[in-house]
């Protein structure tokens, strides 16, 4: 479908070539990894996966540990895990926005749109390239790799873990915010500038409102991703849901595992639902 909403004739050419190349690439990669020839590992492990899947329909709300330790309610652990997952994700998003939004503004064309002296333009262009480069650089390293680096450099620290989460997401936010600014209709902002408004109010009134709904949807989506990342941070010893997941996985308490997974899923659906409701009320 074209962007004008009209059906087009399916063209052979770029799309066909891209599709065939993708299929061939996927097959070649699978063959190269030995996926078709005994790359399946221990076949006995399939039983464990079956047991895991079977527990999806009856998650357990009590501890599955054997007699002297088990039987207690899972709820206190579950609530603490959910709380810490939310805390790490929300703190990460707050930091990421504090860093990413100004960086996105710097990296957009908003600041280098109009005249000024030649030296001023050069400085602004330089700043823009610097901001974009920095955003790409922090984005190119996964948050868990940042976490490993911070663990190695600083030792275990909750603040360092949150900073590790925040860095790549700040890069994402900067990139998308800059793109939203660059793609937003400019007419209103230019008219305000022509009428003598200074750059900052012209931007805030003429450009920002048009991209605000999209920015908010995107931030909700980032919060979902951060919740997942924050949960996984638990596998590295931080007190989020992943910590509980790892413990239950290792002991094969699959009912507990599903309880934690469903809790994470409920959290994600809640954020997704809130995001959709907010988006509806913000208009097109």
């Amino acid at each position: 479908m074209g962007r004008d909403g009209q059906l087009r004739r399916p063209l052979p050419g770029v799309r066909t070539v891209v599709c065939l190349a993708l299929l061939a690439g996927g097959l070649a990669a699978a063959a190269g990894l030995g996926l078709f020839s005994g790359g399946g590992g221990r076949p006995g492990g399939l039983g464990a996966i079956g047991d895991f899947l079977a527990h999806a329909v009856h998650p357990s709300l009590v501890s599955e540990a054997p007699a002297p330790f088990g039987g207690g309610s899972l709820l206190p652990d579950l609530l603490a895990g959910v709380r810490e997952t939310v805390v790490f994700a929300a703190a990460g998003l707050a930091l990421a926005m504090l860093l990413g939004l100004p960086l996105g503004l710097l990296g957009s064309s908003a600041l280098s749109a109009d005249g000024g002296s030649r030296a001023g333009r050069t400085v602004r262009t330089g700043l823009r390239l610097l901001a974009r480069g920095f955003a790409s650089a922090v984005r190119s390293v996964h948050e868990l790799v940042w976490a490993v680096l911070f663990l190695a450099a600083l030792g275990r620290s909750d603040a360092a873990a949150v900073a590790a989460l925040a860095l790549p997401y700040a890069g994402n936010i900067a990139k998308v915010f800059a793109e939203l600014i660059d793609e937003a209709p400019r007419a209103a902002g230019l008219a305000l500038r022509a009428a003598g408004a200074p750059a900052a109010p012209a931007f805030a009134i003429g450009v920002l409102p048009r991209l605000f709904p999209d920015l908010v949807s995107f931030l909700f989506y980032e919060f979902e991703c951060l919740l997942r990342s924050s949960a996984v941070l638990g596998f590295f010893g931080f007190p989020t849901l992943g910590y509980l997941l790892a413990g239950s996985f290792e002991n094969l308490y699959h009912g507990e595992v599903w309880t934690y997974l469903f809790a994470l899923l409920a959290l994600l659906l809640l954020v997704e639902g809130t995001g959709a409701a907010v988006r509806r009320r913000l208009g097109p």
């Binding site: 030995g34 590992g41 221990r42 492990g45 996966i49 996985f249 290792e250 595992v257």
Partner: peptide, 12 residues
Amino acid sequence: FLLVAAVGPVPW
């Protein structure tokens, strides 16, 4: 994490 625990660290 689950798959590696079940079938070992294979590409699959």
